[in-house]
Design a binder for these strands. Structure first.
Lengths: 300, 300
DNA sequence: CGACTGGTTGACCGGCATCAAAATCAGTGG
DNA sequence: CCACTGATTTTGATGCCGGTCAACCAGTCG
């Protein structure tokens, strides 16, 4: 799958890409995207932003390399379930598939789309982790969410004609990009696809509402860990042992806590035997206790 | 709420119902909705929950009585813009229209739908104000949002099969109920309608994300006032002088502030000449200043 | 009338942010 | 390998915003 992926804007210079020309010509991450290509986006070498457990990751997630062909979706794709499971006929599948474009890799810090840019597409994360954020006039950032492989970014832009936030790669990221206008059109004829989009949107409302509640720092951190655990689990990772991609500062910002508080709470959880922490590696030792702590927030 | 109105789920005990059989019958409220109709649902008498300035409201909002006929939507309907403006042909309009049902009135405190009930419909508020909320296991409530006439409740339920929150009437409320399955089906053939639904959903994500940020009590209150002002304005009310339907406690809960804090901040705003407060009547005296205060939250 | 709800105001206090500094780690270059 | 740099994390000390508790007032209702 060498030279397979295209940039978000489809403007990839050197790959075969076969990319249609046209409206998507402004999404850049500059430079060296070729170099990071297929050795696996997650190498041991880029330790700081990447995943130190890349080896493990590769084992647990072979699917990451399975980026589909003309008739098959990535098994990591957020829409694979919606499509494969629905028993669409080949032509429909092909039509959906042809509005997909693989883009990336982006590297830590690269901006995938920026607030205010015209909204053209949503994207499923194929590998890596993306954060969405807004920047206050005074430069303070507010993180809206983290997106793991299989999750979809850009949905909150639908009501506007422009993206309402930045999307930034936290580590090495590859995406499946979907032209939204095309997808909406296709959804006209594919009830399941429409339903899936509705569901994704509605789900995000729920998540955001959850974040909006006022909860203690303990509840927030516990909920964060439980959620991450579940999300990793859904992707085939161990739910009890995972590597966070983001810094304490990012976690804190996302949870509306100071980075110091994140540190302290994690420390305390560890002292209480609920979890074990080693840098960004988290091990959940007492899931029950954690869920009890998170209960007011997760409510289930 | 003795036997007055039917609950959203139709489980009301004693009303005459007269309604057609089948599921329609459940969407009625029997009783005195005639009386409440044009005299205005908001009478001086029920001061605590109602609107002491009903007279003013009637003047500003004659549209409230215009609840449509077989071919015309309520001008207050959230979907009227989507439909009337799109130039759909009569048959389409009629098909959309026939999945609408007027329900209510509900009275202050009545539950429209309850968390966990099977999701069947969304609804546009026709008159009055609705709050959505969840209740913690320990009974503390968290208010998710307020919904003014023309706004849509129930969207966040789409991804699940059940409502994720309660919807409660804050004052006297009437609704237009839309069967969601039918609407989704119709949306298959009406691109504009689909787009409108997408937009509504996506908009809600944005709102929730805004609420999730961490802002000072000043910024939150200012943003609340600005938002209410805009929303009232969109409905034809004065943007600078309006009557809040909800209590300080509800405002505080929604904004994640104590009721006392709401009171104090409003007081201070008044002392600073930014607004004038008289109970639930708000007058904005210095919109600029207010928007400056709200800027970090509203970001525009 | 008294009970009750909603709003205001004041006194107090606690959780978490902030400030500051040390400790750890990753990367770099000698 | 080690020294150096800079980012990240941890830990401690201090302070403030806003929550909590309590008293009081004004309407409203039984």
């Amino acid at each position: 799958m060498a030279g397979r992926q295209r940039l978000w804007d489809g403007s990839s210079p050197v790959t075969e890409s076969a990319g249609r020309p046209g409206y998507h010509a402004r999404w850049h991450d500059a430079g060296e995207y070729l170099m990071a290509q297929d050795n696996g986006p997650l190498r041991n070498k880029d330790h700081s932003d990447g995943n130190p457990e890349a080896g493990l990751e590769q084992i647990l997630m072979p699917a990451i390399a399975d980026d589909g062909d003309d008739c098959t979706f990535c098994s990591t794709c957020a829409f694979s379930a919606a499509c494969l499971a629905e028993g669409y006929d080949k032509p429909s599948l092909r039509r959906l598939h042809c509005l997909v474009e693989h883009t990336g890799p982006y590297r830590a810090g690269d901006v995938i789309f920026r607030e205010g840019e015209p909204f053209t597409a949503i994207a499923a994360v194929r590998a890596g982790t993306v954060k969405t954020r807004v920047l206050d006039p005074d430069g303070r950032e507010q993180i809206h969410g983290f997106f793991l492989p299989g999750e979809v970014i850009g949905l909150s832009a639908i009501h506007a004609t422009r993206y309402p936030c930045d999307a930034v790669a936290i580590d090495t990221v590859t995406l499946c990009r979907f032209s939204f206008p095309l997808m909406a059109t296709l959804a006209q004829e594919m009830p399941r696809l429409q339903g899936h989009l509705f569901r994704l949107l509605s789900e995000d409302i729920g998540k955001a509402m959850m974040m909006a509640g006022d909860y203690s720092s303990d509840a927030r951190m516990a909920a964060f860990l439980v959620m991450m655990s579940r999300r990793y689990a859904r992707r085939g990772f161990s739910p009890s042992r995972f590597q966070l991609a983001m810094s304490r500062a990012d976690i804190g910002n996302y949870m509306r806590l100071a980075a110091e508080t994140v540190s302290r709470v994690l420390r305390r959880f560890q002292d209480e035997g609920t979890i074990a922490v080693d840098g960004r590696l988290i091990e959940i030792r007492d899931a029950q206790a954690l869920e009890r702590l998170a209960a007011p927030m997760l409510r289930d």
